[in-house]
Simulated assay, not measured.
Amino acid sequence: MSEKLLKFENVYYTYPGGQKPALNGLNFSITATKKIALLGQNGSGKSTLLFLADGLYKPQKGQISWARERLKYDRYSLNQWRQKIGLSFQDPEQQLVAGTVAEDIAYGLYNLKLSQAEIKQRLGQILAEFGLQDLADQPLHHLSLGQKRRVALAGVMARQPELLLLDEPTAYLDSVQTGNLLEELERIHAAGTTLLIATHDINFAYQWADWILILHEGKMVMSGEAQDIFSQRSSLAELHLDVPILWEVWQVLVSSLSLPNTMHFPKTIRQLEEQLQQIAG
């Protein structure tokens, strides 16, 4: 059985001046090795959950823990916490702090109090892993949005977190940039990092995630594998959430061609093509 990493227990958070809680008695846990998509309408609490998970906000009530160790909010404890959990913001400008690509990635490493030799080694490794060698000395303001996202993500991963949180990473990216991001995320996950992505993109979530969480009015209302979640169409409609296009297409095919319901649900166009070829014989 996989280890439980991050856990929220009866967590409440209300923004200053807010009329109702952004998180309202939130309970959930994250299992190691998963690829998790967090879904929900605007205002459901997705970003707030990520900010609390990273220790940027402190709940007014409830407990947040990592492997049964409760989060503390002194400077030393938060620094230790953020070596386990990394957060990539929706807007990369919010976390790019230096002049060049290499300087920005190195900034987080200096905060870890590493030796110069180890910083140099880890910086070279992360530049290579993210394909940023040619951009190492490039000023950050010269980069495209996709490149800035990659640099911000590289800076987070330089700290080698066990859990990576991403807030709307596909926002404003074109299809090529989204494909590149998927490749990066698959590589990061294959290296052993657990991933949690907050997103509005149902199709991206369906293609990428192996576990779905749905947040509504600050509460976790649904969780499970994609096939189980998207089968509950009426419940999703009540939450004002759609089903993925590929899921809908497959359901129509299963019905019109009288295919067995036991067939594997395709998550990509390629998988759909392969299954149709098998059906055609």
Rank of each mutant, 00 (worst) to 15 (best):
L213N: 03
I214G: 00
T178P: 02
G192V: 09
G179Y: 10
Y172E: 13
H216F: 04
A191I: 02
I212R: 03
L173V: 03
N203G: 11
Y172T: 12
Y172M: 15
T194S: 14
T193A: 13
G179N: 14
T194I: 05
G218A: 01
T199I: 04
I202R: 03
I212S: 01
H189D: 07
H189A: 12
N203P: 11
A190T: 13
G218Y: 00
D201Q: 08
H216K: 05
A171M: 04
A209V: 01
E184S: 15
L181A: 05
E186V: 11
S175A: 15
L185E: 10
E183R: 14
Q207D: 05
G218N: 00
E217Q: 15
Y206V: 06
I202D: 03
A191V: 06
H189M: 04
H200M: 05
N180I: 08
V176M: 10
A190F: 10
E217W: 00
A171V: 08
D201E: 10
G179P: 05
E217H: 12
T170I: 01
D201T: 09
Y172P: 00
G179I: 09
G179F: 12
A190Y: 11
A198R: 04
I212Y: 03
N203S: 13
G179T: 13
I202A: 01
F204D: 08
Q177L: 06
A198G: 07
N180W: 08
F204R: 09
N203D: 15
W208V: 02
T170Q: 03
D201F: 06
Q177P: 00
E186T: 10
P169V: 06
Y172R: 12
L195Y: 06
